[in-house]
Amino acid sequence: MARWGMVIDLDKCTACQSCVVACQVENNVPSMTPEESLKGRNISWIKVVPFPEGSFPEAKIRFLPLPCMHCDDPPCVTVCPVDATNINEEGIVRQIFARCIGCRYCTTACPYTVRYFNWYEPIWPQPMEQAHNPDVSVRPKGVVEKCTFCHHRLQKARANAIAEDRAVVAPGEYTPACVESCGPKAMYFGDLDDPNSEVSDLSRSPRAFRLLEELGTRPKVIYLAEGERSGTTG
């Protein structure tokens, strides 16, 4: 059984936010009206968060693409009173919209603030809903939503694998939309339990770190810190 995880190389990230848009298009995330948008109420399953460090002239800005961490010990799952969010045996933390009662305990429990509540009925000005992805639900008002690692793509990949009499989904057959769109190839996705996969290899890199590890959440999104600038003189 695979344990899906993502590695994001911060050294390669250009902060272009292609992943953000790819996710919104793939997952039928509605765009907010300008008014709501200006209040910062956009739903964005992955967002690029700036971390300015140092002051002029030694300033650096690190940009951190922030999807759901798909923790191995997700705090959001423990607090859900109706089992509307759970972690499956492949480690994907999912929201079951049909069950969600909108109590928002999970949004509070999530230390990464990557869960979003639908305060409004999603609106697409005609005819933008033509571009809806039929593989993904349109969430109603009143439920919490979040990054699914594009779980529907796994469902399709698995269907293909079974139809072709293969036991497992081949490496590269299942890739979330954000990873697929990444221009500098800063995002990697795969099975963390497969010792030969690129992600498990990278997760053992000395540059690897996880966000808020001390909380014991055991995130499956692993970041690679910026690399050292090579070759000074000579």
């Binding site: 079951i96 919209f97 529907h152 469902q155 269907a159 079974i162």
Partner: peptide
């Protein structure tokens, strides 16, 4: 199928 359910003919008719 009800909302929020993913049903695949391929999975059921071909694979299953």
């Amino acid at each position: 199928v009800p909302n929020h359910v993913y049903f695949s003919h391929k999975t059921h008719a071909v694979a299953g």
